[in-house]
């Protein structure tokens, strides 16, 4: 009759051991490596991933965990103290800054400007349009905007599909916020019924497969299946192509800086990592990924 007891113990230990054992493994492995939590902006996530990967060769001990989710998530993680580095494609709002400072007992999170992102306007290659103005974009995208057909812009679609298919982003992504601020108008809202894609790449994909579509996404997401349209501030002015040069001299109207925030509680490796990011090798990756580097590292010939 001892069996009952042994089986009881066995059953109980089975339940516990499954988890317990792995716990031990998990903690023992952490002795020799440092992991940095890098959370935030979807715009920057590809770039952050490329840095994380390259940095592994610079300092093999440091492993950077990148998760996207968006600037909002990054800022939230900064305020909650659950990350070492927060990526944000916008500056911290005053309120957020205050919250974060309160969380860390009066110490501010440090802000690092790490490059720029130019928002490109994409259309299908078959679309004859070459230039578009911010005003026109606003009429297309904003609530109550007047343009819903390509013919409203004076464009004749070769496919005969005149209705504009608007590709946008989900309503809390940094890209959406920036586009609203820079194009639609801060006090306005987007016209409902746009295809709100989950990722910058999905926007480009949708535009690439839909002849009558228009979409906005970081210039880093450019592919051969879509065409980038020149953008001007006002209708009639010459359009500007998004390049490193036009972004840096501010002639391209829809570009924004990208930031990384480090909370005071972060591991010292975080600051070292960012120091590497804003140095030559880190900024080379910015260019390679299709973003715009800091002024000091811009290629001279362009």
């Amino acid at each position: 009759m001892k069996h009952i007891l042994t089986t009881a113990l066995l059953a109980a230990s089975l339940v516990l051991s499954g988890c317990g054992k792995k716990n031990a493994d998990g903690s023992s492995k952490k002795d020799d490596s440092i992991s940095l939590q890098n959370i935030g902006s979807d715009t920057m996530v590809n770039l952050a991933q490329a840095w994380a990967e390259a940095y592994h060769n610079v300092d093999p001990k440091v492993s950077v965990e990148v998760s996207g989710g968006g600037s909002g998530i990054g800022v939230a993680a900064l305020i909650n103290g659950t990350c070492d580095i927060a990526n944000s494609s916008r500056k911290l709002e005053k309120e957020e800054e205050e919250k974060a400072t309160a969380k860390y007992g009066g110490k501010h999170p440090t802000e690092h400007h790490i490059g720029y992102d130019a928002l490109a306007i994409y259309v299908h290659p078959s679309n004859p349009i070459t230039e578009i103005s911010i005003e026109q974009l606003a009429e297309i995208y904003k609530e109550g905007g007047k343009f819903s057909k390509w013919s409203d812009l004076g464009v004749t679609m070769p496919s005969g599909q005149d209705e504009i298919v608007r590709a946008s982003r989900q309503n809390n992504s940094g890209t959406y916020h920036y586009f609203r601020e820079a194009v639609v108008g801060k006090k306005n809202d987007f016209k409902q019924g746009s295809r709100d894609m989950n990722g910058s790449k999905e926007v480009v994909d949708l535009v690439g497969t839909t002849p009558s579509a228009i979409g906005f996404s970081g210039i880093g997401y450019h592919t051969s299946k879509v065409k980038v349209v020149k953008v001007s501030k006002k209708t009639g002015e010459p359009g500007v192509e998004p390049t490193i040069k036009t972004t840096l001299d501010k002639t391209y109207p829809i570009a924004r800086p990208m930031f990384m925030y480090v909370p005071p509680s972060a591991k010292p490796e975080a600051e070292k990592y960012i120091a590497w990011i804003v140095s030559e090798p880190g900024q080379k990756i910015v260019i390679k990924e299709g973003y715009v580097p800091l002024e000091a590292f811009a290629p001279k010939d362009k």
Partner: peptide, 14 residues
């Protein structure tokens, strides 16, 4: 989204 772990080590996660 991304995380690099030791290749070949089945216990690379905790």
């Amino acid at each position: 989204f991304y995380r690099k772990i030791e290749e070949g080590n089945l216990f690379a996660y905790g």
